[in-house]
Design a protein around this nucleic acid. Structure first.
Lengths: 317, 317
DNA sequence: GAAAACATGTAAGCTGTTACATGATTCG
DNA sequence: CGAATCATGTAACAGCTTACATGTTTTC
């Protein structure tokens, strides 16, 4: 079991308590253990027995006492040996592949629903991992050197989900070639119109051409922070939608000032997660010329467009 | 647990015995259970209790009697419900990512060894999965329709490993930027020359520029069957090498006749698995003109070349 | 004549998860 | 004042694997 060795590796950097270790493992998506108490406290018992760690009890008056574990010489050697030993083959668990292989008797419609639902799940998982990685223990304590390593790890993880999404897209393409009812549904708007407030924002879900979209509207300005990209994507995940129609008075200044990097970050995220964004703002706006250029450029693409009329935006999305 | 539902799905097609089921699951790489008896026979007990399957004992005189399980109406409904319910998020286990995140104190050299070893493992796993998928239960019983589905599944699985390999390549690139000894080793040939016979073929491992290669030589003709591609790749995996130098009297006729598809298949596999192949044949050969054209074309690439002198081949590889 | 495949089952054990139990502190 | 965080631990169970046990037939 590699958990024990991973613990040794973490202790190499600094002595830790069981609780701290648990938090680290729980916050690191590529350490696949749930990080439950049972495993960790049991692991420490084993490691103590083997003499790989030493325990020091820190009595804190009032507070419960902590057990601080430190790596021993033996432990360090055992860790190194593990690191240089043969690495397990990477493996995956994709329930969807099993379902697909057993799907012969299902209708095209049912299969399409399955794929769409699966894509949403994957999309959400990707967002979740992305966030967790950004705020993980390894990020915080990153040197310049290990920062690059963390970037590589992040790339690996995100591209796992990214690949799954683009593969699912090819499955969808395949399903289109199958016999089944042609979807000619027209704009049912607002349909199940589940309406509620979120951060003083009006939120409606509508459907068009069999795909679901979010319609957000507010009076203030929008897209002010880098995190807004992921937040929009999360909303999409939560509401099972594939794009956002964002109605607001105006874009935030930080978004229009390209040097802030806000626009770049947000649009990057949106395109990563294949979420389309149509923004509708009131007509009389004056943007920096460099921003206008970028907007023009983006209109050639498929992820982002800026409109002044709601109807135009609805047509595009 | 989805095993029970997968069993129902398999029974939907035809009644099966426990043993048959075990074989199917064991031969299907995307069904991640080991397919051990315990799980399967226990699963059948559960499914019987729930009334999802019915059991019929076939007494065969002399032979041990079989328990043949058939799907019931209830079972069919339970299966359908499972199929249309939410699919689990895909997940992976990559020990290598954990090792990498804990690798701060390791030298460039050690890291390079780790990555190389990992790449070999992944390469082998890919070959293994590829083969298993080709001869799996689902392939055999494939209709035109489900054949396409199986292609999609296969694509998904192989690209998992493919992606891991190309990612590992970027890790290797990164390691090159790290301080550490420059490798300027020259052609140590033959070095550890572990020599032995395999199918009347002489096999030597040699090293050049820090990379290991296979040197195979025989008197007869080579590359006669489509499977030879994967076999070469397996050999590379077994001997931890990245390319093959194949010395023979001549290429098989099937290989030189493009319409047989043998050459295409083999070269496809080689490029998939990033294995380079240099073939050395005796000089006086007459090949079909279309084949000569293809050879010329391939010489522009990096996977395959044909030589008449051993020295030239050694220089290229 | 031995090994591999066919065929069904059990026992023991590791891995991993959820849930429970306890108790202090901090924060809203 | 209740919820969340800090902190350590246990119990029970689900999931999965290895190995054992038994006996026949087919294949090399």
């Amino acid at each position: 079991m590699s958990l024990n060795h991973v613990i040794l590796g973490l202790l190499k950097k600094e002595p830790l308590t069981g609780y701290e270790l648990k938090k680290i493992i729980q916050g690191t998506p590529f350490m696949y253990w749930s990080g439950n108490n049972n495993q960790i406290y049991k692991a420490f018992v084993e490691l103590l027995e083997e003499g790989y760690v030493s325990k020091e009890v820190a009595h804190q008056d009032g507070a419960p006492s902590k057990n601080i574990y430190t790596l021993t010489k033996d432990g360090d050697e055992a860790f190194k040996e593990w690191m240089l030993s043969v690495t397990d083959t990477p493996s995956f668990r994709k329930q969807f592949l099993m379902k697909l292989s057993l799907s012969e008797t299902f209708s095209r419609d049912e299969l399409e629903t399955m794929v769409n639902q699966y894509m949403d799940t994957v999309r959400m998982q990707k967002i979740f991992s992305d966030r967790e990685l950004d705020k993980s223990y390894f990020r915080e304590s990153a040197s310049i050197q290990s920062g690059k390593i963390m970037d590589l790890i992040k790339e690996n993880i995100l591209s796992f989900y990214e690949q799954e999404l683009s593969w699912a897209e090819t499955v969808r393409e395949h399903l289109k070639t199958l016999p089944g009812k042609e979807s000619t549904k027209e704009e049912i708007y607002p349909e199940k119109g589940s309406e509620h407030m979120e951060d003083s924002m009006k939120l409606i879900v509508f459907e068009k051409n069999n795909l679901r979209y979010l319609h957000l509207s507010t009076n203030g300005q929008v897209l002010g922070k880098k995190e807004d990209g992921l937040d929009l994507i999360s909303l999409c995940g939560e509401h099972d939608t594939h794009g956002v129609l964002l109605e607001a008075e105006k874009l935030s200044e930080d978004f229009t000032q390209l040097r802030t990097g806000v626009a770049g970050e947000i649009l990057q995220k949106l395109s990563n997660y294949r979420v389309r964004l149509a923004v509708v703002v009131s007509e009389n706006q004056d943007y920096p010329s460099r921003f206008k250029e970028m907007i023009k450029e983006l209109h050639k693409g498929d992820t982002f467009r800026l409109f002044t009329a709601l109807e135009d935006a609805k047509n595009w999305i």
